[in-house]
């Protein structure tokens, strides 16, 4: 997904790959028009787009955050984006390996289209 977005070469888009959302990422949200979180999801069988509140109140009970928690932290620091959304990509195979299953790979283009729709909205 990150590679597909990067390959589009859109100058106004910065693609950041992270394994998990950690507090210092709040500083990287500063001044952004739109932040789109893209994550794998087990609870959906199709690409799902969820608008996120940028003044969410979050919790940090361990070493990492969810998207709402990170947005809440950024809002508190005055570094929140203007808008945010979560794009959930369904996953089908969580066995050992780093590649995508054919079913999930087929959803990547759909997810990219969803992100582009947000960007061009």
């Amino acid at each position: 997904m990150a590679e597909a977005m990067s390959a589009l070469g859109r100058d106004e888009v910065e693609v950041v790959r992270v394994h998990q959302l950690t507090p210092e990422l709040a500083a990287e949200l500063d001044g952004r028009r739109l932040v789109v979180f893209v994550d794998a999801a087990l609870d959906t069988d199709r690409v799902r787009l969820t608008p996120l509140s940028t003044d969410a109140s979050g919790r940090l009970l361990t070493h990492h955050l969810g998207p709402s928690g990170l947005l809440g932290l950024a809002a508190g620091l005055g570094t929140g984006p203007q808008a945010a959304a979560l794009v959930s990509v369904p996953v089908h195979d969580l066995t050992l390996g780093t590649g995508l299953s054919p079913s999930t790979r087929a959803q990547v283009d759909v997810a990219v289209e969803a992100v582009l729709g947000l960007l061009d909205h």
């Binding site: 507090p23 210092e24 500083a27 919790r59 009970l61 508190g76 620091l77």
Partner: peptide, 22 residues
Amino acid sequence: RNVFGLMAAEPEIVRRGIRLRQ
């Protein structure tokens, strides 16, 4: 009693922590 409460009370301290971690 969490980082969000701390942020409301002492935002500069939270900023300092974020920068150090960065």
